[in-house]
Nucleic acid binder design. Structure first.
Lengths: 185, 185
DNA sequence: GTCTATAGCTAGATAGAC
DNA sequence: GTCTATCTAGCTATAGAC
């Protein structure tokens, strides 16, 4: 009869997220992760087959949370829902500076990975659904590309001059939101 | 009297670029780099203090090349210079799939790093100079964010559904180029 | 400036007892 | 399911001869 489990997969994912957010993905070792959970490294291999699987689970949990954050923000705003979604996305990225890049490093390699990503994007695609499925996807891609690109540059320090960063974000969101929601030419 | 040098810093950078583009940054080891140049690992330390310095030099060389590509494309086009720059940027990223992410991973940490980045962005900023320095910078940030975000998502496989990716890029570039070049409200 | 040799470290993962 | 112990593998970087 085995011992009662001291840790669960969810606890492992949560602890991994904490360590990555604190020290960066590069510095996450299986040993450090186990120690932070009060357990030895080999124990983790009873819950995940290897380190890659843990990182993958972290990735999925991030996409799920992002989807929730977006749909919540867009559902509750009294103003422009697109802008609300963009602002929430940016805030999510800033709240998860070191975790955020994980969302765009590994290529989705199975059906489940694609499903998770699509679910996260759903609130935005739905916003454009009046234009038809193809156009909605296209519009969602355009606005997502801008917002992701902006926060990606922001987080990596590409906007080194500082001044005017807020205005640039607002202008981009404003103009894209405006042109994307107006009827097709 | 020492032996004649078999390798130069430029050769090291070039070889490093080749290996990264082939196998990815993670798999670039000092030993593999040296071997590909026909020397032993310790020799590289006569040209660069450590591995980080080599990667930094690779990064700088990429920014320089990107700046050249942009200014060349924008200078020679007969159509929309903004669109030409965006297309050239995207092509550059596709031609350097594994190298491109390097441009947005490390934070610029000294004056030279910032200078290199600003130089690469100059062709685009210049395009908006008629609006004044502040507005030009803002507009350049908006269009760069979109293009970077788009290719970043493209390279990471975020557009898994495939169809309509070209149209999404064209639409984004088209609409941003149009609104950014029209007079401020 | 290149070489041989090696230090010194860190990492992911497994075997087998309990 | 957790533990101790260990394996294997890889890496950056340095010392010192030529």
């Amino acid at each position: 009869m085995g011992r009662p489990p001291k840790i669960s997969p969810d606890q492992i994912i949560s602890a991994a997220r904490g360590l990555i957010q604190e020290h960066g993905t590069q510095l996450l070792s299986v040993d450090a992760l186990a120690t932070s959970l009060g357990v030895k490294a080999p124990s983790l291999y009873k819950h995940f087959p290897n380190k890659a699987a843990i990182l993958r689970a972290v990735e999925d949990s991030l996409f799920l949370e992002l989807g929730d954050v977006l749909s919540e923000a867009m559902a509750t705003t009294k103003g422009d829902r697109i802008a609300a979604g963009c602002n929430a996305y940016r805030q999510f990225a800033k709240d998860h500076q070191r975790l955020y890049p994980l969302l765009f490093t590994s290529r989705p390699d199975d059906e489940e990975a694609i499903r998770v990503r699509l679910t996260a994007a759903q609130p935005l695609i739905k916003e454009f659904s009046a234009f038809g499925e193809t156009a909605a996807l296209k519009k969602a891609r355009v606005i997502t590309a801008f917002v992701h690109g902006f926060v990606s540059m922001e987080l990596s320090g590409a906007f080194h001059l500082g001044d005017g960063v807020e205005q640039a974000f607002e202008e981009g969101v404003d103009q894209l939101s405006k042109t994307l929601t107006s009827p097709e030419r």
